[in-house]
Amino acid sequence: MTATADPAADPAADPAVDPSGESGYSDHPPRMGFFTDTSVCIGCKACEVACKEWNAIPEDGLDLTGMSYDNTVGLGASTWRHVAFVEQRRPLAGPDPGASSAAADLDVDVLELAAQADEGPGRPGELRWLMSSDVCKHCTHAACLDVCPTGSLFRTEFGTVVVQEDICNGCGYCVPACPYGVIDRRADDGRAWKCTLCYDRIGDGLEPACAQACPTDSIQFGPLDELRERAAGRVRTLHAAGVDDARLYGADPGDGVGGAGAFFLLLDEPEVYGLPPDPVVTTRDLPAMWRRVAVAAAGLLGAAAVACMTGRNGTGTGGR
């Protein structure tokens, strides 16, 4: 029996994020992560396949979903990299969807398209096809890890979050805890699985399989602080080139999960890609929860006491 580290500290209070240090590693390598630049993703899915090959992940269903070219639907126990495809027709002028509600986007809902009316030639807007490769965020404050009761999920010396399959007991707690819907339980063996950030490769000086397979370097692997710097530069470049929609997602150590170890450059609102706009590690509120649990428990005791005492007085008809 060991006590694991990674207490549910208040992430916002700790901008100098060193999750492996916090977890008790004293002399550890720099925190490694991903910068996934979706603006250069060509949707080839090499990352998905490379991940499956390297990790020997089972097939994840053979359904034609009709969601553009995405037939794997999302991350899950048997899909650790997932490429999203979004077809959009955007107005050429008008309100800037990037800066206001995502509602302004004319998202193409293919499921509805067939029913739509013919707008005729000269339909407004240009078509764009967004592609984005999603992965576990390796959160600085990882809910999955926090809530795992067995210690199966742990923080590596690289600051990543990894499941130890020999310890996982399939309690499933990590699954709804993850604010991004990443980790999932596999139906057949009941255990939880997700991206390991190729723990078995990076220790040997190899790039993660997905990053190595990515032809356009949409997936960049490296020390997190360097990636963040590079990403900031990339956003500046894109903005200067008129790509106002470019924004980073998960790069801010001040966000609800203390910054993601795997962060993204997106060209639209996160929810367009199926990502939560402002995820918060659920355990941030856990101290408050425990306080309330304590009060409620005390209340229960009190209520029982009162009930028993008042009960005795009020209904003294019983006797021994």
Partner: peptide, 10 residues
């Protein structure tokens, strides 16, 4: 190949 077939199943 399952890994490719699942990407475009039909």
């Amino acid at each position: 190949l399952p890994y490719l077939a699942e990407l475009q199943p039909e």
